[in-house]
Design a protein around this nucleic acid. Sequence first.
DNA 1: TCCATGGTTCGATGCTAGTCGAAGCATACT
DNA 2: AGTATGCTTCGACTAGCATCGAACCATGGA
Lengths: 226, 226
Amino acid sequence: MKEGPDIARIASLVGDPARANMLTALMDGGALTASELALEAGVSLPTASSHLAKLMDGKLLTVASQGRHRYYALAGTEVAAMIEAISGVAAHSGPQRARPGPRDKSMREARVCYDHLAGEHAVAMFDRFVAEEIIVRDDETLRLGPAGPSFFAGVGIDTSGLGNSRRPMCRACLDWSVRRAHLAGSLGTAILDKIIAEKWARRPAGSRVVEFTPPGRKAFEKLFLA
Amino acid sequence: MKEGPDIARIASLVGDPARANMLTALMDGGALTASELALEAGVSLPTASSHLAKLMDGKLLTVASQGRHRYYALAGTEVAAMIEAISGVAAHSGPQRARPGPRDKSMREARVCYDHLAGEHAVAMFDRFVAEEIIVRDDETLRLGPAGPSFFAGVGIDTSGLGNSRRPMCRACLDWSVRRAHLAGSLGTAILDKIIAEKWARRPAGSRVVEFTPPGRKAFEKLFLA
DNA sequence: TCCATGGTTCGATGCTAGTCGAAGCATACT
DNA sequence: AGTATGCTTCGACTAGCATCGAACCATGGA
């Protein structure tokens, strides 16, 4: 025997519920921190760390250190394809999956990505920023564009104080629901903070969803999607 | 949480070495008895029986009682595709086996994947089918292309009868040795059947290898790789 | 330099699941 | 019937591993 690749080794990696939850949470192609994954898996941080180490050892994940955060992501499309294949079998085997639930739709629309806004709204906003040179791409990095300071002053965000810190003001972050970039960095955080502070949206506990109120959405669109 | 199908459940089924060995032993699409599988897995008969019960419970296997023998087989192509997908990641993750050995070489070249041909030959054939529009990709699914029916008629495969069944005629299956797709589905089965019927290749017992004879390979290449 | 926060490592604990011998069924051959 | 063979069930044993609290390390911000 002992022919072919060691399939049991990596199948057993997926075979643990906590790890399986982590992997499915990453199936969107995004990257999550260890804490977020721990929450997602419903397990303590040490446990999650141990699992992540195992998944790394099995080359199922990649990690990118950004500051004191470590962003974990699937190692590649092959891994995603494998998860899909397993899901396919599981769907036939297990109890028929119930309803898709309204939660998925809300997640696609607007959610929190650690400390900034992600989802369709965030991508649309970012597109508009770039189109009007509020933000400009400079090679790989992002900078505030010529129209930037006045625009943010107009919506009540002071950008002069954001540039001092060591943390980058603008950063691009890849979105999974839409396959495009959205805005991270301290400016992204400031925008999310404003959305919450103005009570345009709420964040249901224990979820990444950002739930806009009808008037809040209008206000947001008027200011940021113009 | 608890969203989506229970992937951990069935991944953990594959995650045990004994069960993984059984499943790979069945990857040639054949059916084996409990004793044979116990031998294949290197485990005692009671243990094997317990494993088989679990695999049955997870709907990964089917069983057919014939006399006092019970023949176990994979439950379907989906299960086979899943095993292939897992093999794919495992091949890249696991410790690269130092010297591939002659058997691996044959496996890479041509092998049976449940009920159709896989390996380099199969991938080359599939590429040619796509290039000449014998088969066309339609989003995620595959269809017979404009040049399809006449081509297969020319090589002695009647495609008109294959579309009726519930089973899809063309399906893509990811190859683990080469990182590309090859042809599954009833058409894939028909091609493998023809290769065996024409005696272009033999299948050594107890292995997934497909061993082409020198003239058989020539004939195959002339017809399918043109 | 000092604190706060995100992550990993260590150690101890508890539970699950794989393992096999022996016994129990079921089917077939004589 | 009687016996042999293929397979499953039962019971007991064991090992591995997931889990968490607490301590430890690293980075960022003041």
